[in-house]
Design a protein around this nucleic acid. Sequence first.
DNA 1: CAGAATCCTTAGTGATACTG
DNA 2: CAGTATCACTAAGGATTCTG
Lengths: 146, 146
Amino acid sequence: MEVTKVENQRLAIQKKIDKVLCSKAEPETCCPVKDILARFGDKWSIYTILTLGKEEKLRFNELKSQINGVSQRMLTVTLRSLEEDGLVSRQVYPEIPPRVEYSLTPLGQGLLLQLLQLADWAKLNIDQILEARERYAKKEKQAQLA
Amino acid sequence: MEVTKVENQRLAIQKKIDKVLCSKAEPETCCPVKDILARFGDKWSIYTILTLGKEEKLRFNELKSQINGVSQRMLTVTLRSLEEDGLVSRQVYPEIPPRVEYSLTPLGQGLLLQLLQLADWAKLNIDQILEARERYAKKEKQAQLA
DNA sequence: CAGAATCCTTAGTGATACTG
DNA sequence: CAGTATCACTAAGGATTCTG
């Protein structure tokens, strides 16, 4: 019985993978995971989403000062691409000096929750990963000596 | 009552973000999410993990033929980095011709589950994202005409 | 078969200067 | 303030050739 259960779980996973992993043709829009990952797989998107998640509404320079190390250019590029995907909304107030407020859309908030879940897993397993890296580094060293 | 509940949820999220988002110093090892994302934010890692998740054990060329478009070099690089993090195990059989079998470690299987969860979200929301992109493209076009 | 090594192209990123 | 435009650099990725 137990064995069948595990077996069934395995099959369910394989089935899921098959649906997610469209192996051929159209590299775009075909694999939704890949497409989503491309959104925050870059250097600044995660930080931007997390920072906006904390504060609800932030102006350009507020974001820039809270995201440590980002350049003006890259923040602009990142915000544009997030806006393009409907994850961030951009509210322009036609004043002088100009004021622009950024915030997460409901869609962006949904993604934020996914990121936080991933973060839970990451925190739970980061030590294992760091250990694995050390082990690997040691093995490398020994291989070089030989 | 309802309001307080929502309010509390919001605070819980902000707290979580604060823990995940270490804003200053040590860019490495400090933000676990970023660190994990760097693992499969690249071009081939996800495909590799998903493909290995389907088949349990695969040889180098089997992987290469199943991951559509990957070069020999990039597959090697990807596998090495996944092995380094303890996500993939590499079993060498000292025969002639050589045989090498790759498989997910328990840690890698854990990450696979996370990826599949993300995939669920992705599939659920990909349409909204695509719509947002179209809307954005239209707005861009109109702005250019003006 | 499973790669290592090399070279080359280009996309991502960053610094700087300028503008409504 | 909130950008845009330009240039320059680096690293990711890919094509090819060679090997135990």
